[in-house]
C-alpha cells in the first residue's frame, strides 16, 4: 500500500467523509519526487462542534504513523458539509528552496 493509499484508507474508515481529496504535493518541494508532502481536504459531519485546532489534532493522531515516517508536510483543510458550501481551499506554499 502506498503512503497515499494508507492515509486515504485511514481517513475513510475513521471519519466517513462526504469529500476526501488527497494530493501528493511532493513535486512542489526540492529533491526527487517522493511521498513526503501531501495536501488533504476532508469534509465530514464528524467536525461539527470542533474547533480548527481540535480537528487538526484529531487528524494528526489518526495519521501518527505516517507523520513519524515518510510524511514531512501535511496540509490539512477540514470542513463540515455546511462550511464546505462556502469554502475555497487555499493553495499550499512552495518549499523555500523552490521559491
Amino acid at each position: 500500500m502506498t503512503v497515499a493509499d494508507s492515509i486515504a484508507h485511514k481517513v475513510q474508515q475513521a471519519l466517513n467523509p462526504t469529500v476526501l481529496a488527497l494530493e501528493n504535493e511532493s513535486h512542489m518541494h526540492s529533491g526527487p519526487r517522493t511521498d513526503s508532502h501531501f495536501k488533504l481536504v476532508v469534509v465530514a459531519e464528524h467536525f461539527q462542534g470542533m474547533s480548527k485546532v481540535k480537528r487538526h489534532q484529531a487528524l494528526y493522531k489518526l495519521l501518527d504513523t505516517e507523520l513519524n515516517g515518510p510524511v514531512h508536510a501535511l496540509a490539512l483543510h477540514l470542513y463540515t458539509p455546511e462550511e464546505w458550501k462556502h469554502s475555497s481551499v487555499p493553495d499550499s506554499p512552495l518549499c523555500s528552496s523552490k521559491n
Binding site: K52, V53, H56, Q57, Y60, D64, L74, A75, H77, P93
Partner: peptide, 23 residues
C-alpha cells in the same frame, strides 16, 4: 499535541499552523 511547524500561540493558546492561519 501538534507535530508540525510553524505553530502560532496567542494569549497562551495554540491557534494552529500555516493552514489554519491561512483560513
Amino acid at each position: 499535541e501538534w507535530p508540525t511547524f510553524p505553530q502560532l500561540f496567542v494569549d497562551g493558546e495554540l491557534v494552529g499552523g500555516c493552514d489554519i492561519m491561512t483560513e
